[in-house]
Amino acid sequence: MRWALTLMVCVLPFSPVRSESLTSTEAGRFVTLALECVHREYPNKIAHVMASDADAKPPRQLTPAFYGCYDWHSSVHAHWLLARAARAFPDAPFAASARAALARSLTKQNLALEVAYLQTDGRASFERPYGLAWLLQLAAELRSWDDLQAREWTSALIPLEEEAAARVSNWLPKLAYPIRVGEHDQTAFAFGLIWDWAQTSRNAAMESLLRAKAQEFYLSDRACPLNYEPSGQDFLSPCLAEADFMRRVVESARFAQWLDAFLPQIARDGSTDWLRPAQVTDRSDPKLAHLDGLNLSRAWMLEGIARGLPAADARLRSLRGASALHREASLGAVTAEHYVGSHWLGTFALYGASNN
C-alpha cells in the first residue's frame, strides 16, 4: 500500500521541539559532530547486496544523499539531527551550516537515486526497520518545520518517504513475531519512531497497523526480564523500548496498569538502584561503544515512560531519577575523540535532550 503524501506538505500543524533543557551551545556541540560526518564518505560500512560487478561502486554513487557517517542509517539520522537543531535554534551560529548541509544532500536528483537503490532486486530488507524508521522520523521533522526551505526538502523527500512507508506497511502484516534484540533489528524502538511519523503525517493506516502489532506482540507481555539487560553490545533496551512504544498507543490509566505487570521492578520510593547505567570499557571499540548509546536511549525512554503515566503515579520520581543517572553516565562521551561513536551518538544525545 502507498499513500498520497504530496498534498500534506503545507497543511500539517507545527510541532514544537521540547528544548527547555537544551541550550544552543549544547545543540551546537552535536551539530558539529553531524557536520563532520554527513559528507565524509570513508570509513564506510555498507550493507550492499551485489548482483554483478556493475554493483561495485563507492557509497557516494550508491546512495548519494545518505552516504556519509559510516553507514546509511547513521547518515539519515545525522540529517535529522541537523534539521532538529536548525529548527529549534534558527538564529544559532550553526544554523546556516546545518541548512547548507541539508540542501547539499536533499536534492531531488539525489533522493531519486536513493529510491532507485531501494527498489533494486535483493534489497527488500535493506535497513529494515531501524534505518527506515529514522528516514520517516527525518520526514516528520521536516514536515513539522514551518519554513520555506524545509518545505522544499519535504517535497523532495516524498518519493523516498513513500517507499519507506510502503516497505514498512507491506512487512508488518507478514511479521509473525516481535524482534526483541538490543540493536538495529528491534521492532519496539522502530515502531515508536514510525508511530510519531504517522501522527505527524496523519497516516491513519500506519497507526492502525502499529496498534494491531502493539496488541499482538506486546499487550499481554508480563515481567520483562530487565535484570538480563544489557547484553554486551546493546544500544537499545528491549524492555524499556517496548514500554516507551506502548505509552504512545495505550491510554494513560491503562498504560499504568500494563506497566505494573510488565515492569514490576520500577521503584515507587524515588530510588534508582533498580536500574544502573551500563559500564563502557572501551569507547574506541565500535560495538562496546554501543553501551553509551544504551545509556542515552534508556534516559529518554525512561522519561517517555514517565510522560505516559498519570501525574500522581508513585513511579515518576524513580523513573526520572534513573533517567538523569543514565544521561549523566554517557553524555560526556559524546565527543569527536572516536569516530565509531561520534558518527551517531550526537543524534542520541540530541533526540533525548529535545524530546524531554
Rank of each mutant, 00 (worst) to 15 (best):
A96K: 13
Y117I: 04
G122Q: 11
L113P: 10
A116C: 05
P129T: 09
R104F: 07
S97H: 15
F94D: 03
R128I: 08
A95E: 13
R99A: 13
R99E: 12
F126A: 12
K108E: 11
Q109M: 04
A116Y: 07
F94H: 10
T107Y: 14
L113K: 05
P129F: 02
E127M: 12
P129H: 01
L111E: 04
L111Q: 05
L102N: 07
S125I: 07
A95K: 09
Y117H: 00
N110W: 11
S125G: 04
F94C: 07
A95S: 10
S125W: 02
G122T: 07
E127F: 05
L102Y: 15
Y117M: 10
R123F: 05
G122P: 09
R104L: 13
E114I: 10
A100H: 13
L106W: 00
A112R: 02
T120D: 14
G122S: 10
D121G: 06
Y130S: 02
A116T: 15
V115E: 14
F94I: 11
A96M: 03
A101G: 01
R104G: 15
L111D: 00
R104P: 06
T120K: 13
A101R: 07
S125K: 14
T107V: 13
L113Y: 10
T107R: 01
N110G: 03
S97M: 05
R104T: 15
A95P: 02
L111S: 02
F126C: 09
T107M: 02
K108M: 02
Y117K: 00
A103P: 11
E114C: 03
A103Q: 09
L106H: 01
V115H: 14
Y130N: 08
A103W: 13
E127S: 03
A98E: 03
A100F: 00
A98D: 00
S105R: 00
R123W: 01
V115N: 08
L113F: 06
A98R: 04
A100R: 14
L113C: 09
A103I: 13
A116N: 12
R123P: 10
N110H: 12
R128F: 03
A103V: 11
L113R: 07
V115R: 06
V115C: 10
Y130C: 14
S125Q: 11
A103C: 05
S105G: 14
A116G: 08
Y130M: 02
L102D: 04
E127Y: 03
L113T: 08
G122C: 11
S105L: 00
R123G: 14
Q109L: 14
A103F: 01
A96R: 15
E127D: 02
E114N: 04
T120R: 10
